[in-house]
Amino acid sequence: MKTILITGSSKGIGLSAAITLARAGNKVFASMRTPSNASAFKSLIETEALPITIIKMDVDSDASVTEAVNQIFKETDRVDVLINNAGIERHGSIEEMPIGEIQAIMNTNYLGVLRCTKAVLPNMRKNKRGLIINVASVAGHVASSPLGAYAASKFALEAVSEALAQEVKPFNIKVNIVEPGIIDTDMAKNISQPGDSIYPQSFRFAGLFSASLETPTSPSLVADLMLDLVNKETDILRHPVGPDAIPFIEWRASMSDEEWVNWNAANDDEWYQSVEEVFGINARRKN
């Protein structure tokens, strides 16, 4: 049995991971901003007698992270695995997105990961053992409008995870990056709803996500990967997950930067036709 801390456990991938890892016999601390809203989760824990403790943590706050981790160390002497899953999404063009929204994305998706990592690393180094799983995204490899600000946070997370892996390996601590594609979560559903914009990419990407969600990929697929990583303790750094993850990363890698910019800047007819030819997806919104 391993002791696992998961951030952002109230829904989606985090919730699925907490349940999956606990059912496998691990002790899970499932953190979230508002535990009072997790009544269904609490009922499941009680019904199945799962080894899960729900704790309050806001990864945007130094004090909240410190308080939550201190609470954990009052109950146990170690954290074997940290899963940095908490994240937010805002979509829109660079011009139209308020600076405050961009700062919020970076604070949660990048700095939040660093806060939690810095809080548990001393314990892992002392024990000379640990695993840190950072949930990035295909968007950590592929920058597309209207997800520019979100992609920036995931590119940053990819970079710092790669550097962290180098630093902690001598202490027998491993770092894995999980890179989901389009997963059936509230975040993906939010992207599938276009906002008002002077730029066409917002509407087009909404159609792409909406079409992809017609054959949804469950968050349990990501949770199963996390369980596998916890059990195997692999040195492999990056782990794309989902049926569209590797194809999309490879497709972007096959294009020059100029080709990629031109594809995203194409007119609507050319863009929709290309998506249908490459991925077999009709991204034109039915309405």
Rank of each mutant, 00 (worst) to 15 (best):
V241Y: 01
I236P: 09
Q201K: 01
I183M: 10
L229H: 09
D186N: 13
I177K: 00
H239P: 11
N190F: 07
P180A: 05
D184T: 06
P216F: 02
F205H: 07
P243N: 04
V241S: 03
N190R: 14
V175Y: 00
M226A: 03
S218W: 01
K174S: 12
R204W: 15
A245C: 08
A188F: 15
G181N: 04
V241K: 01
A206S: 15
A223T: 10
R238P: 05
I191C: 13
I246A: 05
F209Q: 07
V175F: 00
V222N: 05
V230Y: 11
P200A: 11
D224H: 14
G207P: 11
I183K: 04
E179G: 03
S212K: 11
S202H: 11
D235V: 11
P216V: 05
P219M: 06
I183F: 06
D186C: 03
I173D: 14
G181L: 05
R238E: 08
L213D: 14
P243T: 07
D224Y: 11
D235K: 12
Q193P: 00
G242T: 04
S192D: 06
L208S: 09
L229Y: 08
I182F: 13
A245P: 07
S220R: 12
T215S: 10
D184K: 00
G181M: 05
M187D: 03
S210M: 06
V241M: 02
I177R: 00
S197M: 11
S210W: 04
F205W: 09
P216A: 05
I182D: 06
H239W: 06
Q201P: 10
A223R: 07
I183R: 03
S220H: 14
I191K: 10
A245K: 01
S220G: 04
S210V: 01
V175H: 03
V230T: 03
P180Y: 12
P243K: 01
V241T: 05
P180F: 13
P219Y: 02
F209W: 11
Y199P: 06
I182P: 02
T217I: 14
L225C: 07
G195E: 15
L227Y: 07
R204Y: 09
L221P: 01
S202D: 15
I246N: 02
D184E: 12
V230F: 09
P240C: 01
Y199M: 13
R238Y: 04
L229E: 02
Q201L: 08
E214A: 10
M187I: 14
I182S: 06
N172W: 08
I177V: 12
S202R: 08
E214R: 14
M187N: 11
E233K: 03
N190V: 09
G207F: 06
E214S: 11
K232V: 08
S202Q: 14
L229R: 09
N172E: 13
S202W: 05
V241C: 02
I236V: 14
G207L: 10
L229D: 05
K232M: 04
S210N: 14
D196H: 13
P194T: 09
G181F: 08
I198H: 10
E233G: 09
P243C: 04
P194S: 12
L237K: 05
D224K: 15
S192Q: 13
N190Y: 09
V178I: 04
V178Q: 02
D196W: 08
S218C: 10
P180Q: 06
I246L: 09
N190M: 15
D235Q: 11
N231V: 02
P216H: 01
A188N: 13
L213N: 10
T234G: 04
I198M: 10
M226E: 03
K174A: 13
